[in-house]
Design a protein around this nucleic acid. Structure first.
Lengths: 110, 110
DNA sequence: TTTTGATACCTTGTACCGCAAGGTACTAAA
DNA sequence: TTTAGTACCTTGCGGTACAAGGTATCAAAA
């Protein structure tokens, strides 16, 4: 119950930064969806497929990302996503917005 | 258009921390809704009434808050909210969760 | 005394988004 | 030829922020 509650809270907090995380990761390296999910899990940010796929599609439709298909040596082909210039610009704005929020919370908690 | 987009992003980011902000503020002082809205606005976290009132009611129903009515020298009576022990406990968990997320983003951005 | 402005409470309808669950398809190994 | 692993994607549901509109109290101005 309390477990459930805090999980819910964490999920809420993640909500706001998920887009930011995706763009951040793609800023460093192109990646495909399953890969991103794995990395986020490692970073203790749990995301399920039903969340990520629509998100990537949304970002692509907004012109923040593009993708290309690449064959895999094992398994089906992968859809590698790449940040566009527009995506990079937005990422910079997100950096600023994130910094502001962190700062604000810091002040509120003192 | 781009303006709109970044505002949306900020709104999303706020989304995850709003509950946390409310409990944090009430941890320091009892307060009533309009007062909280004002303080959040000062902290550059914009929240409208239609967001805050249901949120406070939700937190109250979860046993995180209680309230009492107090007369005002000018204007209608005010509903002062107070953190419960349960609310304080949850706040501690939120502190931890928030710290983790900030740390994670920090790593992802490097 | 009635109207206006400020303060404070609250609700309804809409849109968005994360999640659970389920589905398809390709490849390799058993 | 069936099973396991990988990778893609969609549908339905529930929760939540926001826009907009509504009610009530009090004090001061008209």
């Amino acid at each position: 119950m309390s477990e459930n509650n805090i999980e819910n809270i964490k999920s809420q907090m993640r909500r706001g930064v998920l887009e930011y995380c995706i763009l951040s990761m793609l800023d460093k390296n192109d990646a495909y969806a399953s890969e991103l999910i794995g990395k986020l899990k490692d970073a203790r940010i749990i995301v399920v497929e039903g969340t990520l796929y629509p998100l990537l599609t949304r970002q692509k439709n907004q012109g923040l990302l593009t993708y290309r298909w690449e064959e895999s040596s094992q398994g089906p082909p992968r859809k590698y996503y790449t940040l566009t210039d527009k995506g990079r610009d937005l990422l910079k704005e997100m950096d600023k917005a994130w910094g502001e929020i962190v700062e604000t919370i810091d002040i509120l908690r003192k």
